[in-house]
């Protein structure tokens, strides 16, 4: 709980902010000449804004998810929402055929994707939660199983598609920050900020849930309500960030595990803040790496999952006993 030693983490926050500032300025002003100024700077600002939305969603949802599952090796990305997203994209392309490229980038399609994902995920979670009287692991596993079923369906569609249709889908299968539409960005930012603020109302209860279900209830936390709310928040945030940029399955575990190293505390305000900052740094750095070093050859999403996946294996091998 709150004590004067809150200030303990100031140096870490300060250092992260500094790193972020350096990365952002390098990213913004690298290779900018007078001719390209008007094109490059606004585009890059847009990318940074998208990064901010994703870092917020991923940071909040992963920390909350790990707290309510009482487990630090899980990430909300595994709950099947990625596969649902790819399924919706694939279905649209498959049903509408080849002329869909413009349609795919439109605001209405984005809103459609977002609403379907939110309704489906919240619906599944609520149903499973009720069905199993609040056993959270069951809810997670059901999400995963649904994800596998959607994965099966979408790989079926991928086989059926002709290569030109597939190339449109391939562009949507991996997270990328380079095709952001400003309208979409506004909607996603609104959704994720509102949802995060809503979650912050219960931040004290989250702190107590760290002690486990029994002790949280003994301390007067409305355990069921908070856990259910957390699941809804996780579903909404994951939907928002996935619909905006595409699947970033293993970004959450990467960012939050690093943040836990830097900020070893149970306090969720600090932990979430730290995770968002870490996420920002990681994403801007990744953006620099894809644009400068790899010359756009591999989408950022693929690299994030590659690095995050390797980190997960490392984490699993070094964890003592869960």
């Amino acid at each position: 709980m709150r004590r004067p030693k809150n200030k303990k983490f100031f140096p870490q926050f300060f250092a992260l902010l500094l790193i972020l500032l350096v990365l952002v300025s390098v990213y913004l002003f690298c290779d900018v000449s007078a001719q390209t100024l008007n094109y490059n700077i606004p585009r890059r600002l847009g990318v940074l804004a998208a990064i901010a939305v994703v870092a917020l969603s991923v940071g909040v949802s992963t920390v909350v998810f790990q707290t309510v599952t009482e487990n630090y090796i899980l990430t909300p990305g595994i709950m099947g929402l990625d596969n649902l997203y790819i399924f919706i994209q694939g279905l649209t392309i498959y049903l509408l055929g080849n002329g869909t490229f413009n349609m795919m980038a439109s605001t209405s399609h984005f809103v459609f994707t977002l609403i379907v994902m939110m309704c489906a995920s919240v619906g599944i979670f609520l149903f499973m939660f009720k069905l199993n009287k609040g056993d959270i692991y069951f809810v997670v596993l059901s999400g995963l199983i649904f994800g596998m079923a959607f994965g099966g369906l979408s790989s079926f569609m991928q086989v059926l598609m002709d290569p030109s249709e597939f190339s449109i889908l391939e562009g949507r299968m991996f997270a990328s920050f380079n095709r952001i539409n400003m309208d979409l960005l506004g909607i996603a930012a609104l959704v994720s900020t509102a949802v995060s603020v809503w979650m912050f109302c219960d931040i004290r209860s989250l702190n107590a849930i760290v002690l486990g279900r029994r002790q949280a209830i003994a301390l007067g936390v409305e355990y069921k309500r908070v856990v259910l709310k957390s699941l809804i928040v996780v579903a909404l945030l994951t939907s928002a960030s996935t619909a905006l940029v595409g699947p970033v399955t293993f970004l959450g575990i990467l960012v939050v595990s690093i943040a836990r190293h830097i900020f070893p505390t149970f306090r969720h305000d600090i932990l979430i803040g730290g995770s968002i900052l870490t996420g920002l740094c990681a994403l801007v750095f990744g953006m620099l790496a894809t644009e400068r070093v790899m010359q756009f050859s591999v989408p950022l999403g693929v690299i994030i999952n590659f690095v995050g996946g390797l980190y997960f294996i490392y984490l699993m091998l070094k964890v003592k006993r869960v």
Partner: peptide
């Protein structure tokens, strides 16, 4: 948790193959 971690590991391997 065991199958959960297993499926997640599968996802990781998929991510590696995808790369």
């Amino acid at each position: 948790l065991v199958p959960l971690v297993g499926i997640m590991l599968g996802g990781v391997v998929n991510a590696l193959s995808t790369f």
